[in-house]
């Protein structure tokens, strides 16, 4: 199958990069761990002397699940854009676009290859988190279905940025801002109840909030698959994911055509 071949090609590319730039890859993973470590501990401790520090295993568990989903969002939203920018920069994008498979098909293979790699890394992070914070979280298999739906929306947002990169080349901090919006306003590390109403409403429009909320219901409240899909929230979640996926695909195809018309696939 074509897509398998593309996934293998992109996995191979990741492997060569990881081998060549292993220090960078490992240090970025360690940095992620320390960011999360800091976030969890800063929310449970006080600067005030002799104050009572309360370590809440439930809140920590929620944050671990939220952070792990954000770990995937981090890549889904920004990787396609940054990899296209890199391909443009090193002068390889035109050769990739010369493939008989469309560019969007190629990017899908690229995303799936990253998903496979990140899945492996997330299992490692998950085990380290559980050990470090001494919590026990069990993730049922059914979560995978809702994870894929959540990831589809995030991938759509990633395609949207990738399309913009074809035309504008450098998006500046836009993808970084979006990544942190997803960390702060989706309930990944801060409970949504603590936000004012307008921020709560804003958070519901982001492509990770509803998915994360549903995943947490399954993991922490033992909600069943049937119960989830009967809820109106699932319907909103489905629309949200489809919206972002469609937005990404339509925007990317439009901007790719525009880039091909301008001859912008080979310029950086």
């Amino acid at each position: 199958m074509k897509i398998i071949s593309i996934i293998l090609a992109e996995c191979y590319r990741e492997f060569v990069y990881a081998k060549r730039y292993s220090v960078e890859r490992i240090s970025s993973l360690i940095m992620l761990f320390f960011i999360f470590f800091g976030i969890v501990y800063s929310s449970t401790t006080s600067f005030q002397a002799n104050s009572y520090n309360y370590f809440d295993p439930i809140s920590t568990s929620h944050r671990i699940v939220g952070f792990l989903l954000w770990f995937f969002a981090l890549d889904a939203v920004g990787h396609l854009s940054s990899s296209i920018r890199e391909d443009l920069h090193i002068g390889i994008l035109e050769q990739i676009a010369l493939s008989p498979y469309s560019l969007i098909y190629n990017l899908m293979g690229r995303s799936i290859s990253r998903l496979i790699i990140n899945f492996t890394l997330s299992i490692l992070l998950f085990l380290v988190f559980q050990k470090t914070f001494d919590v026990n979280i069990k993730i049922p298999l059914v979560v995978l279905f809702f994870f894929i739906l959540t990831y589809s929306g995030l991938y759509g947002l990633g395609l949207f940025f990738a399309g913009l990169t074809l035309i504008f080349k450098r998006l500046g901090p836009i993808t970084t801002i979006t990544r942190f919006l997803l960390l702060i306003f989706t309930g990944a590390i801060i409970p949504l109840d603590s936000f004012p109403l307008y921020l709560k409403l804003f958070s519901q429009t982001l492509p990770m909030t509803l998915g994360l909320s549903i995943i947490k219901e399954i993991v922490f409240e033992n909600a069943t698959f049937l119960k989830i899909i009967k809820d109106y929230k699932f319907f909103l979640f489905l629309i949200n994911s489809l919206f972002y996926l469609s937005l990404g695909i339509i925007t990317f195809l439009y901007l790719e055509k525009k880039a091909r018309s301008k001859g912008a696939l080979g310029t950086y």
């Binding site: 071949s5 191979y12 060569v16 090193i90 035109e94 050769q95 493939s99 080979g266």
Partner: peptide
């Protein structure tokens, strides 16, 4: 082979380039 482009990965070896592009083209 396009002018002004590298066309291949310069940080890969020739064999690594072959593996990547062969897989990419199925």
């Amino acid at each position: 082979i396009l002018e002004g482009s590298r066309n291949i990965f310069w940080n890969f070896t020739p064999l690594q380039n072959v593996r990547y592009f062969a897989l990419l083209r199925g």
